[in-house]
Amino acid sequence: MRIVMAGASGFLGARLADRWRRSGHDITRLVRRPPGAGEAAWTPSQGRLDPAVLAGADAVVNLAGANIGARRWTASYRNVLRASRVDSTDTIARAIAKLPPGDRPRTLLQSSAVGWYGDTGDQEVAEEAPAGTTFLADLCRVWEAAARPAEDAGARVVLLRTAPVLDRQGSPLKPLLPLFKLGGGARIGGGRQWMAWIALADWLAAADFLLEREELAGPVNLVSAQQCTNLEFTRELARQLRRPALLTVPGPVLDLVLGELAGEAQRSQRAIPGVLRDAGFSWAYPDIQSALAAALRPQPAMTR
Rank of each mutant, 00 (worst) to 15 (best):
M1D: 15
M1R: 15
I3M: 13
S9K: 12
F11G: 08
F11R: 07
A14K: 15
R15K: 08
L16N: 00
A17H: 08
R21F: 02
S23A: 14
D26V: 06
T28D: 10
T28Y: 13
R29M: 12
R33G: 00
P35G: 07
P44V: 07
R48D: 09
L54E: 09
A57G: 06
D58V: 03
V60A: 14
G65H: 13
G65V: 13
N67M: 11
G69W: 04
A70E: 12
R71I: 09
W73G: 03
N79Y: 10
V80C: 09
L81I: 06
R82I: 10
R82W: 11
S88N: 07
D90V: 00
T91S: 05
A93W: 11
A97Q: 05
L99H: 15
P100K: 10
G102L: 11
G102K: 13
D103Y: 09
L109G: 07
T120K: 08
V125T: 12
G132W: 01
R141K: 14
R141N: 09
E144S: 00
A145D: 15
A146H: 03
R148W: 10
P149F: 04
E151R: 12
V158R: 05
R161S: 13
R161K: 09
A163D: 10
A163E: 07
P164L: 08
L166Q: 01
D167E: 13
D167F: 04
D167S: 14
D167R: 07
R168Y: 04
L173E: 01
L179H: 05
K181M: 05
K181Q: 15
G185C: 08
R187K: 15
G189E: 09
G190V: 00
R192G: 10
M195H: 05
W197L: 06
I198S: 03
A201K: 03
D202I: 04
A205Y: 08
A205W: 03
A207F: 04
D208V: 07
D208R: 05
L210N: 01
L211E: 04
E212L: 10
E215Y: 06
L216I: 13
G218H: 08
P219F: 11
N221D: 10
L222Y: 09
V223W: 02
V223Y: 04
S224Q: 08
S224I: 05
S224A: 15
C228Y: 12
L231H: 15
L231F: 04
F233T: 13
E236W: 02
A238F: 00
A238M: 01
L241H: 03
P244W: 00
L246E: 02
L246D: 01
L247Y: 00
V249S: 01
G251S: 12
P252A: 12
L254F: 12
L254I: 06
S268Q: 11
A271D: 09
I272H: 12
L276C: 03
D278Y: 05
Y285R: 04
P286I: 07
P286M: 08
S290H: 12
A294F: 03
A295Y: 15
L296H: 10
L296K: 04
L296P: 03
Q299M: 09
